[in-house]
Design a protein around this nucleic acid. Structure first.
Length: 560
RNA sequence: GCGACCGUAGUCUAGCCUGGUAGGACGCUGGCCUUCCAAGCCAGAGGCCCGGGUUCAAAUCCCGGCGGUCGCACCA
């Protein structure tokens, strides 16, 4: 895995302006990074590629929400309660442990649902694994950033630890927008915040990071998912939670029961397709199922998408979670607002039913204030049989017996049309860590060829698309090169111009930041109005007329 | 959060042990040279992570903080 070698990729990324450690002049703060000039373009291109796939091609709509939310949101979502680590440390040697893990390991007691006070009692029976010392009581540490909304008597709030909650909260609005039909999906790209205990490894673990998430709302009774068909043959590299490896198609994985349904498999495949399309080698992409212990508090099943990197081995860049109905149910409970979808039957069900219909005017006149209670009681089904037998019913209110005969009620047969059933949709959630993906992409693209560093980013993803150079720094060449440079930019193509140093040096520097094409104006240009286009990966050149340059570049970049 | 190691220009690094205020290389800026694949010439700018202590004097020794790497733990 090459753990000892230094991180050339990170070094290049910082040196050439992709990323910088944040707040450097004040000593830096771990877990935060700035995107520099090239990194910001790269990030935008990757996010737009994601949009291209999820929004344009797959047809899911994007929303954009605040990153601060009132406390209630995360009480309901379970993050206030579950997004914490119950830590204990040894009062002697300072070693720290997860309390729940320790209890399960040493005492073999299931800690699920246990309060911290209960855990504390068990912890008293345990000594430090390392030195036998006394363990402290549980220290809790919530990984969410806390804040206050407004001045005086402010409402408590948190910076969101995931973008997903906003979509769940807006479910009714979004369900309405999507014309009340399942399945439907909503996406969001935005910042999330987690106050990690020890952020490390550059872009891999950040305290503020960008997520791209899809919340796909489905009917849990449907195993099928219409759009899955077009992707079912995609080959996948899978590792299930027993450690079994599979290299099979998505369809086969569904048939083997590895995935809960086709919608889940569809999200797995989309994840792979996205990574492939931004330029990650598909042989470096695998999916690993979470073990029971790894599962988040909301997840019924989850698979991580991992990409292989030279520096860190396999790292998680996306997670596909089956959140079931957890979130909608929780928000329904805490907000008191119904959050359900109506599933229509093929044909409305028509149910014939006998009811005792009260004659309201008679009951009201006779029983006055007691009428309301009487009407409630009349809904009891057993009274129907009694009425059929005796043509009257006897009910009791506060110890008083009341007899109701045909003067007050009549037996009727009513027809009820039931068009469908309300259910809580289930959610499949692919969630992407954009920053990690950027790191993996840089790692995947980084090549050293005979001492030459080449960042072989796909042309459409590379931050700068074209470099324009005069072969040597001569005014007559520079002027032509500058004109081409200008024209490219006017055609919405990211380009740079450089006249310094030898041509070889300029090619080298362009290769290092992944510029796929270099246009060179040479002395032949003065004679016949042609220039060369040099290709980064092969160093080959073609010669074309200046007039064709923009169109040729557009063609190479795959834009029309 | 614990432990180990570490922190010198944009990058890599010499100097630290044996205190006397920094030297190189690449990069950067300007100039020269240069007719296709970085490292030819000249000139220039730029640095001891922060704070405190010891000392006549601290990049150097001590303490604390911040940051980094690795291991443990954690990573929804």
């Amino acid at each position: 895995m090459g753990r000892e070698e230094k991180d050339n990729v990170l070094e290049l990324a910082i040196r050439r302006g992709f990323i910088y450690p944040s707040y450097e002049i004040y000593g830096g703060v771990s877990g935060f990074f700035d995107y520099g000039p090239l990194g910001a373009i790269l990030k935008n291109k990757i996010e737009n590629k994601w949009r291209e796939i999820f929004c344009i091609r797959e047809g899911f709509y994007e929303i954009s929400s605040p990153t601060i939310a009132p406390e209630e949101v995360f009480i309901a979502s379970g993050h206030v309660e579950n997004f914490i680590d119950p830590l204990v440390f040894c009062t002697n040697c300072k070693e720290s442990y997860r309390a729940d893990h320790l209890i399960e390991e040493i005492l073999k007691i299931d800690t699920k649902g246990m309060t911290f006070e209960e855990m504390n009692k068990y912890i008293e029976k345990i000594q430090c694994k390392k030195c036998g010392g006394k363990l402290s009581k549980i220290n809790t540490f919530n990984l969410m950033f806390k804040t206050y909304i407004g001045p005086l008597n402010a409402r408590k709030g948190y910076l969101r630890p995931e973008t997903a909650q906003n979509i769940f909260i807006m479910f009714n609005r979004l369900y309405e927008f999507c014309r009340k039909k399942l399945p439907f999906g909503i996406v969001q790209i935005g910042k999330s915040y987690r106050n990690e205990i020890s952020p490390r490894q550059g872009l891999i673990r950040l305290r503020e990071f960008t997520q791209a998430e899809l919340e796909l709302f489905i009917n849990p009774r449907e195993r099928k998912f219409e759009r899955f068909k077009r992707y079912e043959n995609e080959p996948l590299y899978l590792i299930d939670n027993n450690g079994n490896e599979y290299k099979i198609s998505a369809r086969e994985a569904v048939e083997k029961g590895l995935f809960i349904n086709e919608a889940f498999a569809y999200c797995i495949v989309l994840t792979k397709i996205f990574l492939k399309e931004i330029g990650i080698d598909e042989n470096r992409i695998r999916f690993r199922q979470h073990s029971k212990e790894e599962l988040a508090h909301y997840a019924k099943d989850a698979w991580d998408c991992e990409v292989y990197t030279r520096r860190y081995g396999w790292i998680e860049v996306a997670g596909i979670a089956y959140r079931g109905d957890y979130d909608l149910k929780m928000h329904e409970k805490y907000s008191g607002k119904e959050m359900k979808a109506l599933i229509l039957y093929d044909k409305p069900k028509i149910i014939k039913r006998e009811v005792l219909e009260p004659k309201l005017s008679e009951i009201g006149k006779t029983f006055k204030k007691r009428a309301k209670i009487i009407l409630e009681k009349l809904k009891e089904e057993k009274l129907i049989e009694e009425f059929k037998r005796n043509k009257k019913v006897e009910i009791e209110i506060n110890g008083e017996k009341i007899i109701l005969d045909e003067k007050f009620i009549e037996l009727k047969v009513v027809e009820e049309r039931i068009v469908g059933e309300k259910i809580t949709p289930h959610v499949v959630e692919p969630s992407f860590g954009i920053d990690r993906i950027i790191y993996c992409l840089l790692d995947n693209s980084y090549k050293e060829i005979n001492g030459r560093i080449v960042l072989s980013l796909k042309p459409e993803i590379a931050p700068i698309s074209v470099a324009v150079f005069p072969l040597v720094d001569k005014e007559e060449l520079n002027n032509i090169a500058l004109k081409i440079y200008e024209e490219l930019r006017n055609n919405k193509i990211y380009a740079i111009y450089d006249e310094k140093d030898s041509i070889g040096k300029r090619y080298y520097k362009a290769d290092e930041i992944g510029i796929p094409f270099a246009i060179t104006v040479d002395f032949d240009t003065l004679k016949d109005n042609t220039v060369t286009i040099r290709f980064r990966d092969t160093k080959e050149q073609i010669r074309i007329s200046i007039n064709e340059v923009v169109n040729k570049i557009k063609e190479l970049l795959n834009i029309s």
